[in-house]
């Protein structure tokens, strides 16, 4: 009894601290693994020869064999699908930010009747299942001649991306105090100059982030792309059509071709996504 009591001392604070550190790094490791392991496996298999991909046991290391990728790249229609994907995604990005950002600004700065209802309805567009919309849209697009065009598909993707663009930019603009703009007005700016010289530089990182988001929504969207295009397929639509019947190594090559550009794009704008000018990005 007395022996038990003598060992019953509180654990030193230091050990609780190191347990906390262990937990922290375990979480860091887990999150990194969550993101990096699938990408790693995708890359390893995309860079391996067909025999290595289907063979067993695996080495876990890339074979640096570009034959799958080469075959995939020379696969007829891939280049065109890739170009279509980029075109549609860029159009989506431009349209959704071009329409969404002014809406976000208006929501954050002006009082108008139906403002709250609008904020609700803007999310409602996501409530419509795309398959429900696809058929009437296809019919309408054929009538107007928008079917099988990059613009037509970009319009549909814009509809999908715009609620996010509006809501993200709304919160971005709301984070800039109105006083900032008013200060600019008293210092000689008109409304547009105040926006360009004060608000825009402050929201640019956020705008870039929401543009990337719109880009990836379009880049990854497959259903509308598969229904609304025939000749001018985007990459996901092209892959879903062709890779179903392809061997495993080609599927990996196609997957890599989808993931890599998205990664590169986000990497290119990463500095806008982090803190700038010595202030924490809100």
């Amino acid at each position: 009894m007395s022996a038990a009591a003598s060992t019953d001392v509180p654990a030193p604070v230091k050990s609780a601290h190191s347990a906390g550190r262990f937990l922290f790094w375990a979480c860091v490791f887990l999150i990194c693994a969550w993101v990096l392991v699938p990408i790693y496996l995708l890359m390893v298999n995309a860079l391996s020869s067909p025999e290595q991909v289907s063979g067993f046991p695996k080495s876990g290391l890339p074979g640096f064999d570009f034959s799958s990728l080469q075959f995939f790249a020379s696969f007829s229609g891939v280049g065109r699908a890739l170009w279509n994907s980029v075109l549609v995604a860029v159009l989506t990005m431009v349209l959704s930010i071009g329409i969404g950002a002014p809406a976000g600004y208006a929501l954050s700065r002006f009082e108008f009747p139906g403002k709250e209802v609008f904020r609700m309805l803007v999310v409602m567009t996501r409530a419509f299942p795309l398959p429900l919309l696809a058929l009437p849209l296809a019919v309408m697009f054929i009538r107007t001649g928008l079917d099988d065009t990059a613009l037509g598909l970009a319009l549909v993707h814009t509809v999908l991306a715009i609620p996010f663009a509006v809501l993200i930019t709304f919160s971005l603009f709301s984070a800039i105090p109105l006083e900032m703009e008013e200060a600019a007005w008293t210092l000689g700016c008109n409304r547009w100059q105040g926006f360009r010289k004060v608000v825009l530089p402050l929201v640019l990182p956020g705008i870039a982030a929401s543009a990337v988001f719109a880009f990836t929504i379009s880049w990854n969207e497959v259903f509308a792309a598969a229904v609304l295009t025939i000749e001018n397929r985007t990459l996901p639509a092209f892959l879903i059509q062709n890779l179903n019947v392809s061997p495993l190594h080609l599927k990996f090559a196609g997957g890599a071709a989808l993931v890599v550009p998205a990664l590169v794009f986000i990497f290119a704008v990463r500095k806008y996504l982090f803190a700038m000018w010595g202030i924490a990005n809100r």
């Binding site: 105090p177 008013e182 200060a183 600019a184 007005w185 008293t186 210092l187 008109n190 010289k197 700038m276």
Partner: peptide, 29 residues
């Protein structure tokens, strides 16, 4: 509009532009 009134204003929360240096803040107007 405010810019044509020959006024300058100091705000309660200062409204110092965070993306500009102190020099550029003062030079803004």
């Amino acid at each position: 509009p405010p810019r044509e009134r020959g006024i300058a204003m100091v705000f309660q929360n200062y409204a110092v532009f965070p993306h500009l240096t102190v020099f550029e803040n003062i030079a803004f107007g």
